[in-house]
């Protein structure tokens, strides 16, 4: 690998015409030197071990049978006799399937609520003129200054007074229409040029028709971004369901997992299997939709 570090720069001396181009190559831009490439891959692999290694270790632990020593000082990443026993043990200890169902119900309510609520409001704020619009926007923006944890106690008081404490609706309700998503959808609708809309207005289209035929086809990108974020946010959330839910029957997966690790003398294999049950679905969602995901992050869908 070392012999390739300098050569291209030396060559052009004989043929003066293409010299500038070649020299730029030699300095390491455009095409990269092989040594740098190898170094980069080595560092990338190191970072991969650090970031993904713990998940692999957990997956491996979850597949190790009762007969395999999981504490050995020479870590064994490949289970000697892989088994799904630990996953069955999770199901025997906690009602993990109904927890997963609960998480899914909460996530579904949040996704649908945000998709509908934020789209309608975003369209109205971006494309319709009416009194009170500026005030509404100012209030929405004002709410972003509050971290969710600040109002979590009074949210609980509200949910309790609605008779929804210890219910899944109570878990989903406060974030069913998130103000940040309203702002993001508004930005998406504002990016549609007015000329596209004007034709529809001249043709006498109603606000509703403009939303369906002009608006929606042009905001699909942002709509998928907010639904993915809503799903992951609801699926991963811990603090709020922990406060709202009291009956172990109603737990979502994250609260149930904490319950699994706290209430019983912990068997690391079973807890590992439990974490994988919560982790794998979100990885699948993420892996299939990551294209939208990264675009969303780059477009500023960053939750403070």
């Amino acid at each position: 690998m070392t012999q390739l570090t300098t050569p291209p720069a030396g060559a052009p001396a004989k043929t003066p015409a293409p010299a500038p181009k070649r020299r730029r190559r030699g300095s390491g831009f455009g095409t990269m030197r092989r040594r740098e490439k190898l170094l980069r891959y080595a560092l990338l692999l190191l970072a991969l071990v650090v970031t993904v290694g713990p998940f692999v270790w957990q997956l491996s632990t979850s597949l190790k049978g009762a007969g395999e020593n999981i504490y050995t000082s020479t870590p064994q990443f490949i289970p000697s006799d892989p088994t799904f026993d630990n996953y069955l043990r999770v199901a025997e200890t906690i009602p993990v399937l109904s927890y997963a169902k609960n998480s899914l119900i909460v996530a579904a309510m949040t996704v649908i609520g945000n998709a509908v609520g934020a789209t309608l409001a975003g369209f109205a704020l971006a494309k319709l003129h009416f009194r009170g619009r500026t005030l509404f926007l100012a209030l929405v923006l004002g709410t972003l200054v509050l971290p969710g944890e600040v109002t979590i106690i009074s949210q609980y008081v509200t949910v309790r007074s609605l008779g929804l404490a210890d219910t899944l609706i109570g878990v989903a309700l406060p974030t069913t229409v998130a103000m940040l998503n309203v702002l993001l959808m508004r930005a998406a609708f504002m990016a549609i040029p007015d000329e596209m809309d004007e034709a529809a207005v001249i043709d006498g289209a109603s606000a509703w028709q403009r939303l369906i035929h002009v608006g929606l086809p042009n905001v699909r990108g942002m709509l998928s971004v907010i639904t993915i974020f809503a799903f992951i946010g609801a699926w991963d959330d811990f603090l709020w369901p922990l406060i709202v839910l009291t009956d172990p029957q109603n737990y979502t997966l994250t609260v149930g997992l904490q319950y699994l690790s706290g209430a019983f003398t912990a068997n690391p294999r079973v807890i590992a299997a439990g974490t994988m049950i919560a982790f794998i679905p979100i990885v699948i969602v993420f892996a299939t939709l990551q294209r939208f995901f990264f675009r969303g992050v780059e477009e500023g869908a960053i939750k403070g």
């Binding site: 934020a118 109205a124 003129h129 509200t158 606000a207």
Partner: peptide
């Protein structure tokens, strides 16, 4: 651009308005 009825924006804004008031401003 004033072709819509006065309440149309508020119909669209309805859910967001409820959530703004009940789950954002009131808890604050």
């Amino acid at each position: 651009m004033k072709t819509q009825r006065w309440f149309t924006p508020w119909l669209l804004l309805g859910p967001a308005l409820v959530w703004l008031l009940v789950f954002n401003l009131w808890p604050a």
